[in-house]
Design a protein around this nucleic acid. Structure first.
Length: 589
DNA sequence: TGCGTTTTGTTT
DNA sequence: GATTAAACAAAACGCA
């Protein structure tokens, strides 16, 4: 659902309750195409600092993102109330369209929400689609004929659609405060800003040198093919040496290296009995003295195959254009509301980071948070000892001292506590963790208990995290089925335990990212081009790079302090490592 | 043939 | 004896 060029763009200013001094006003802006819409937005921005209210940033800004200059974005655009983003916060994900968001905001069942094309049965049975219609039915739901994007047909409809967004935002706010608490309003703001950022990330992409990427892949894989036939030839050439080492399969045909089952059989014939062919297992075996040459060859083949398939010519053609790697971005996805991206942007292998390069006259600023998760744990649990330890640059040093173990052991112990690991050396240090950080551990244990019991949990900022359903097992089920059931419950416990930390960390990160975004947009020094859970990659003008690097650290100070206050935790110190580089690969980390 | 599951691998 | 979280993505496998 997006406004086509030449259609209308609905822009709304919100009421005081949404963070404004101004009264309610709904705007419907006629826009002859994205460029005109961008000018209108820029004009409106000059009026004093509104908080925009929209059904979703994607709908309103998507059509004009990328217009008006790559690095030229209205700074206050992200001061918004994004109904879809707030709905995901309130409802814990799922369908975030206007109909579902409206239903939940009204306390109605989202399943009863109308969908486009559906007969309108729930209302007054009035006139179906007149210009004078209200998008909202008397029962609170949206009218189905409004949900299909036709709000953009006339100025009158756009204005009413905008007003409905405003009304929904008000209801949402009440609901949010009632279910998650007053502090969740602050989260709603930063999540809305992240939604704007997601649209911008999608439009801008990551500066990417295709030729450098090809070279990096070729260094491992060999010359890249030009077409399908060439691809088949180079695959065969890659396979042949290893196939000769493995010998023929039972049918006499060469082993299909892409079939785990066939590779497993072939290894068994070579006298290697393995439970699976995971590369870490193969690597460990290959490193042993006297290991057969096949193993080393197989490990190398796997590495090349992976790179060729995941980041070969097809991937480059599909996702890189005009010197930018582009992906679809979600501002809050998954169990805990992290930002996610398609095209494998969050798992670009190290070899390829050399291809992420600043454009002429620009530099990259890479900033990553140090030890975010334990610091976030200190905030959300309010554990005084952990909060004190966070004062150090290296949080694990004082932890090691308290636990009376080596730093590495301490680090594993903290991570294991957050992930719910109970076996091995990490399990053994749990008792010491509990003694040293009773509040932190108690909070984690409580989240795990609630998750295992099927109760939903909330992040520090108030996001609802739904634990996955686990199918009940009848009492008379066999021991294997009962064991699987128990394992699922435990898995759900670990999920919930992790989600409260990971999800809260995502909220802190987004608050920081939004602050940095506003800084860059305000002075036109550049743009955020990549968000990687605890890492920001900025593309900035060369002459501004050092100032931006300093600014990013300052922004962390202010946004982290604000976040700690908002969620009612102690003022925990957060740190960031910042590097100014021309290529991503040159920033260590 | 098509669709869902399993295996594998990369990142945080 | 096991049981560290999340994500995206491709190809093989298994079943109807």
């Amino acid at each position: 659902m997006s406004a086509a060029p030449g259609a209308l763009l609905a822009v709304v200013r919100g009421p005081a309750g949404l963070g404004l001094a101004d009264g309610e006003r709904a705007w419907a802006v006629p826009a002859a195409g994205p460029a005109a819409a961008a000018r209108v937005l820029a004009d409106l921005e000059r009026e004093r600092s509104p908080r925009w209210v929209w059904w979703s940033a994607r709908e309103v800004l998507g059509p004009l993102a990328g217009h008006g200059g790559r690095d030229d974005r209205p700074p206050h655009l992200a001061r918004a109330w994004d109904v879809a983003a707030v709905h995901r916060l309130v409802a814990g994900g799922g369908d975030d369209g206007p109909a579902a968001a409206r239903a939940v905001a009204c306390g109605l069942a989202p399943s009863a929400a109308p969908s486009p094309g559906q007969l309108d049965l729930g209302g007054d049975g009035g006139v179906p689609d007149g210009d004078g219609d209200d998008p909202v039915r008397p029962d609170g739901h949206l009218r189905p004929e409004w949900v299909d994007g036709s709000w953009a047909d006339t100025p009158g409809r756009a204005a009413r659609w905008a007003a409905a967004a405003l009304g929904t935002a008000g209801l949402q706010r009440e609901r949010l405060v009632a279910t998650a608490g007053e502090h969740a309003v602050v989260t709603a703001w930063s999540e809305s800003a992240a939604a704007v950022l997601a649209v911008e990330l999608e439009a801008s992409g990551v500066p990417f040198d295709v030729a450098a990427a090809r070279r990096a892949v070729e260094a491992v894989v060999g010359p890249l093919p030009e077409d399908e036939a060439g691809a088949a030839r180079s695959r065969a050439a890659r396979d042949a040496p290893l196939q000769r080492l493995l010998g023929p399969g039972p049918t006499g045909a060469p082993v299909d290296l892409r079939s785990p089952a066939q590779v497993l059989d072939a290894l068994a014939r070579a006298g290697l009995d393995l439970p699976d062919t995971r590369s870490w297992r193969l690597e460990r075996l290959a490193e042993e003295p006297g290991a057969p040459a096949v193993l080393r060859s197989l490990v190398a083949w796997r590495q090349a195959e992976r790179l060729a398939v995941a980041h070969g010519p097809r991937w480059l053609a599909e996702h890189v254009a005009g010197g930018r790697l582009r992906a679809a971005w979600s501002a809050s996805d998954g169990g805990a509301g992290r930002m996610t991206a398609s095209a494998g942007v969050h798992s670009i292998p190290r070899e390829l980071r050399d291809a992420v390069r600043a454009e002429p006259g620009h530099l990259l600023v890479r900033a990553d948070l140090g030890q975010v998760e334990p610091r976030v744990l200190a905030v959300v649990s309010g554990d005084p000892a952990l909060a004190r330890d966070a004062a150090e640059d290296d949080l694990y040093a004082p932890v090691a001292a308290r636990l009376r173990v080596a730093r590495d052991v301490a680090k594993v112990a903290v991570l294991a506590a957050m992930y719910g690991q109970t076996s091995g050396a990490a399990g053994a240090t749990m008792a010491a963790m509990e003694r040293s950080y009773p509040r932190a551990v108690a909070m984690l244990v409580d989240a795990a208990r609630r998750g295992a019991a099927g109760e939903d949990v909330r992040t520090a900022g108030g996001r609802l995290v739904r634990v996955p359903a686990v199918e009940e097992v009848p009492v008379e089920a066999g021991p294997a089925a009962l064991e699987r059931y128990r394992a699922r419950l435990a898995g759900r416990g670990r999920f919930a335990r992790n989600a409260v930390v990971q999800g809260s960390a995502a909220e802190l990160f987004k608050a920081w990212a939004a602050t940095v975004r506003a800084r860059l947009a305000a002075d036109g020094s550049g743009a955020v081009v990549l968000c990687l859970h605890d890492e920001l990659l900025l593309h900035v003008r060369e002459e501004d790079a050092d100032a931006v690097a300093a600014g990013v650290v300052a922004d962390l100070g202010t946004s982290a302090a604000r976040w700690c206050r908002a969620v009612g935790g102690p003022p925990v110190r957060f740190t960031a490592d910042v590097a100014v580089v021309d290529r991503w690969s040159r920033a260590k980390g």
